[in-house]
Amino acid sequence: MKITLNGDEREVREGMTLDGLLGEIGLREPMVATEVNLEIVVRAERAGRMLKDGDRVEVVSFVGGG
């Protein structure tokens, strides 16, 4: 199935979770923010969040420097 990740189309396998996707792209880090279809998904809910065809996923790393 196809999702949109940070604005770009991406092929992911059926049954992929949001947490699985973070692992795949090397961003399974504590300080990333995620949303699916404009709804924020908190850390605790990512492993249980199944992705669906057409989902629009945004992943943003915390940038704390100043």
Binding site: P30, M31, A33, I40, V42, R43, V60, F62, V63, G64, G65, G66
Partner: peptide, 15 residues
């Protein structure tokens, strides 16, 4: 906090 929930448990990347 809506976005990032909590301060990082491990130190964040600094300049």
């Amino acid at each position: 906090r809506c976005v990032f929930e909590n301060p990082p448990v491990t130190p964040a990347e600094t300049c």
